[in-house]
């Protein structure tokens, strides 16, 4: 009995202190404006109206500038791209957006990875990043299907911090430190990259980016993940565009089909449009690229303008068709 009393007298205050630390860190997270937390804070807590939402991994975050999209289209857009994110993570973001006080977007752009069909074989990329938002129902419902850790975080909040270690890289977690400001050029989730590494040997030697035939097969997991993303858009009556973005090439080859034959089934089923930018002239200009797949700020602005014009054209055609 005495031992039990001793153990409790140590454990209970330690749990209470850990919980206080968790509140402290969460307060810091909510001040983030950059990276994942910045994006998620905007999605979950703001009520701005965005007509166009952009999803995907780094090639979404770095390649599409909402400032250009907005000025060309006259609409409001937001870049929800997060480094390393796949279909499931993006779906969680989209669902959280739809569950928050934002009005529904009209268009969702999903920027596809070059090897999206094979993917990484797992369903959720960074479950850990969602832990601080375990109390958000949209987040919890989906993440808990793939990851048990979030259940622990939700029900035993005092142990949650042990799961946050990665996030401690962000000094802004400490709330009394001046909240982090957006870095130069960041705008509505977009993060520009400056300069280029295309003069490095390994990039100079790269001739043409083609997708090997064997990579055209879609893994069942990835097919399922893509379908679930498409379904959310369809259920909410949102137009979904799957975009195959620019990648550096030395020659334009119109025979390359990056849309994967198996993709057509999904496209037909969910009424999704595919846009392929493998053959843009700007893909042959090194100074547009940071590396083979990532545009720098100059390239991103050019590509954003091209993409927005295409989006507008397609919606006009659709409007005409539906009017007829």
């Amino acid at each position: 009995m005495r031992l039990l009393k001793y153990i409790l007298s140590v454990i209970l205050p330690a749990f209470a202190l850990s919980y206080l630390a968790l509140l402290f860190v969460n307060a810091g997270l909510k001040k983030q404006q950059n990276d994942f937390f910045g994006t998620f804070n905007h999605i979950a807590n703001k009520s701005d109206k965005h007509d166009i939402l952009i999803f995907g991994a780094s090639i979404a975050k770095n390649n599409i500038n909402p400032r250009v999209v907005d000025s060309v289209s006259g609409k409001s857009s937001f870049n929800c791209g997060i480094y390393g994110f796949g279909f499931v993570d993006s779906r969680i973001l989209l669902e959280s957006y739809l569950h928050s006080s934002h009005p529904k977007p009209t268009t969702v752009v999903y920027v596809m990875q070059p090897d999206w069909g094979r993917g990484r074989g797992h369903e959720i990329t960074y479950a850990l990043q969602f832990y601080p938002y375990a109390n958000n129902n949209a987040v919890y419902e989906t993440v808990s299907k793939y990851d048990d850790g979030i259940k622990l975080v939700k029900h035993l909040p005092f142990v949650a911090l042990s799961k946050y270690n990665d996030h401690l890289k962000y000094s802004s977690l400490i709330p009394f430190v001046k909240k982090n400001h957006l870095r130069t050029g960041n705008y509505q989730g977009y993060e520009p990259i400056y300069g280029t590494v295309m003069n490095l040997k390994r990039f100079e030697n790269a001739t043409n980016i083609t997708i090997k035939k064997d990579s055209k097969e879609i893994s069942p997991v990835q097919q399922n993940n893509l379908e679930s993303f498409c379904k959310v858009c369809k259920d909410n009556n949102i137009k979904l565009l799957l975009v195959f973005p620019c990648s550096y090439t030395t020659k334009i080859d119109t025979t390359v089909d990056r849309s994967f034959p198996a993709l057509h089934q999904i496209v037909d089923k969910y009424n999704v449009q595919v846009m392929d930018y493998a053959n843009l002239e700007m893909n042959m200009v090194k100074s547009n690229f940071f590396d083979l797949y990532h545009l720098n700020n100059v390239g991103a602005d050019k590509f954003s303008a091209v993409l927005t014009k295409d989006i507008l054209e397609r919606s006009q055609k659709l409007e005409v068709r539906s009017a007829k």
Binding site: V10, L17, L161
Partner: peptide
Amino acid sequence: ERTFSIVTLTLIIVLGIF
């Protein structure tokens, strides 16, 4: 001693890598 135990356990919970 008790303060040491509480502080150390808290540090493990908060900063430990599991």
